[in-house]
Design a protein around this nucleic acid. Structure first.
Lengths: 197, 197
DNA sequence: ATTTTAAGTTAATAGTTGCTAACTGTAAAG
DNA sequence: CTTTACAGTTAGCAACTATTAACTTAAAAT
């Protein structure tokens, strides 16, 4: 028995839907395509979800909560600023790898889909995530280990964007395996531009 | 007479198509929606293009050549390395503003569209652009003004990604006006992490 | 002055979309 | 042993998709 068979059909629909959006884009996100990946007909999907929009909501919530959880987990460890920052990025990267880069792609797709409901969920997630990162950076500035001449909120957004850029490169290079080959290298590059020295 | 009326229908179709992809995503890229923006019926589009795919090809080529042109123009100026780098980034940003961030969005959309033809054009563009940037960085390393411990190709891709990150932030924040508020600020941030000191 | 061409229209094609209704089999509940 | 709920099926709906054909009209070419 494979892992795939252990998941409920409902969960397999969510997973397949997310995979389609990430790998093929929103245009291919159709009941038929989801059904094909799950191994059921399109009509059977409606036994588990009232509409395709509801699947999207579940996808967004699932992947976003994983991402939010990662930053909260890092903050809860109560480490010194530099270590917290390092931990947050490491956690973020591991969620990114587990989900095959789903979150940035979802953000990008639904920020332009015209669906206000989807946009609002994603927008408040990004804002929240960004704010938490900015707080850590601010604390670092107060402690004098982070450059004073940078805007924490701006750098936080830059970080979010940078991760997205890595996903973009991953897709563009048609790579297999990890999205970020050397997380420690990335962190050191990032720190080089942020930290005082 | 407005500028819009001076453009040929063919050009207005290309422009409208690009706008739809950038603002609303590939899913809304339909003959009817393009026609609506241009002010003609969907059928009339086929008097100018044999298929929607051909419009996509024209869109990609148009926006990409503008982007490629910008780096070539900067290189032709034969400035010292640091100035060339600065000029390339400035040119890139101004193309980005003129086109409302079309190129990164197009790259992202069509890298996952499943259409090999579109992917190949974009892939070779990104590779080419990246290679040219890497060459400048390499020259900078040889002259001893750019950090020796960075990989030029990696940093070149990071730059492409950074621009994409800015477009992402622009969309996510539903901002109006310029995508990059202060290009000089961005350049100095970028140089802080790249240049020797 | 007539013909031809360009660029638009409406109407129709076949295929796809989200979604519903009616049906079927199977497994748990009573 | 029967009933019921679940999770699937097929068939069908209206609305949409890309594209084509037949027609109109106005301007350009002859």
């Amino acid at each position: 028995m494979t892992i795939e068979e252990e998941l409920s059909t409902r969960e397999r629909i969510i997973k397949a839907g997310a995979q389609i959006i990430v790998e093929e884009g929103l245009r291919k996100f159709t009941a038929k395509n989801i059904g094909y990946r799950v191994g059921i007909t399109d009509a059977a999907i409606y036994k588990h979800f009232p509409s395709l929009d509801n699947i999207v909501i579940e996808i967004i919530n699932k992947y976003i909560s994983r991402c939010s959880g990662s930053v909260d987990r890092s903050l809860a460890m109560n480490l010194p600023v530099e270590e917290t920052l390092r931990q947050v990025i490491k956690e973020h990267i591991s969620v990114l790898e587990e989900t095959n880069g789903a979150v940035p792609v979802l953000c990008f797709e639904f920020s332009r889909s015209g669906n206000v409901r989807f946009f609002d969920i994603l927008h408040s997630f990004v804002e929240n995530y960004r704010e938490k990162l900015a707080q850590i950076l601010k604390k670092g500035q107060e402690e004098g280990i982070v450059r004073a001449d940078i805007d924490p909120k701006e750098i936080a957004m830059l970080f979010v964007g940078l991760i997205q850029a890595k996903v973009f490169a991953y897709i563009m290079e048609k790579r297999e395996g990890p999205i970020i080959k050397d997380p420690d290298q990335l962190i050191s590059e990032l720190f080089y531009g942020i930290m005082k020295r």
